[in-house]
């Protein structure tokens, strides 16, 4: 069964005269890592907002774990571009948020889970720190830990590294791959960066036009234990050029 399924989904923003999604169908299998690649403003984020329940489709069905999204309070883990750590809470208190909202988890258990999550993202001992004491990369890792603590198997990451500097971004990409391998979560990752998409995903879902009618799936011929050097292999260089060409062609009707 698919973790996420779009079944003939159409969406139009209120007040717009065109659909942004039109009759879109696709499915995501458990444990996969896909990047949705497309130019800015093509409607990639709309796919996420329909999945996490912030928007509701005009037509069609969105299923997460086989169940329709509409009406459910918590559907999946969502991490936006900005880390959105609450500045008035410590890092630990920020991580507690999803559990506070869900309720029913004793404080002691929360602390244990927070410490485990922080250790997993390499921020052990940062529980009592304030978000502004952390660097950009550390903040994103804390935000990722918070997303993990929602307990969801499906994680939607919306350009989480786009605001980071180049080197931090590279490190974070490698780090994220590592997290994916150890946790076995299903990750859907939005980006407009072709190299990022190639390096991270098992297959890239390309948005070719707006309104989005289909996602073109392009397999990346690399295993899970890839390194950045693999991107210089001839077939990947060629694939990169092909993807860039597709993005250039992308038409807005």
């Amino acid at each position: 069964m698919s973790v996420l399924e779009f079944d003939k989904v159409t969406y139009r923003y209120p007040g717009d005269d065109k659909n942004i999604l039109e009759n879109l169908s696709f499915a995501v299998e458990p444990g996969s890592f896909h990047c949705i690649l497309g130019v800015s403003g093509c409607g990639k984020s709309t796919i996420f907002r329909l999945t996490n329940g912030l928007l509701h489709q005009t037509e069609g069905r969105v299923l997460v774990g086989g169940e329709p999204v509409g009406g459910r309070r918590h559907v999946c883990g969502y991490m936006p571009q900005k880390d959105l750590l609450f500045p008035w809470r410590t890092v630990g208190e920020n991580l507690a948020l999803p559990m506070e909202i869900r309720g029913g988890i004793p404080k002691k258990e929360q602390l244990l889970r927070i410490d485990a999550a922080l250790a997993q993202v390499g921020l052990a001992g940062c529980r009592g720190k304030r978000p502004d004491e952390l660097s950009g990369g550390m903040r994103q890792r804390a935000a990722f830990a918070r997303t993990m603590l929602t307990g969801s198997d499906l994680l939607l990451l919306d350009e989480p590294f786009s605001a980071l500097d180049f080197l931090t971004r590279l490190t974070m990409q490698e780090w994220l791959l590592d997290q994916w391998r150890t946790t076995g979560k299903t990750i859907l990752f939005i980006t407009h960066d072709v190299e990022e998409a190639l390096f991270l995903s098992s297959s890239v879902l390309v948005v070719e036009s707006t309104p989005i009618r289909s996602l073109r799936e392009i397999r990346v011929p690399l295993g899970a234990d890839r390194t950045r050097r693999d991107l210089t292999r001839p077939e990947l260089v060629e694939l990169r050029e092909e993807l860039i060409g597709m993005l250039r062609k992308q038409v807005t009707e």
């Binding site: 969502y78 948020l97 909202i101 929602t150």
Partner: peptide, 19 residues
């Protein structure tokens, strides 16, 4: 955006107000 994030955690309007 913060309110939206909290909503995806399953927050109610009351949660958003208080937190």
């Amino acid at each position: 955006e913060m309110a939206e994030l909290l909503t995806t955690f399953g927050a109610t309007r009351r949660d958003v107000f208080l937190k």
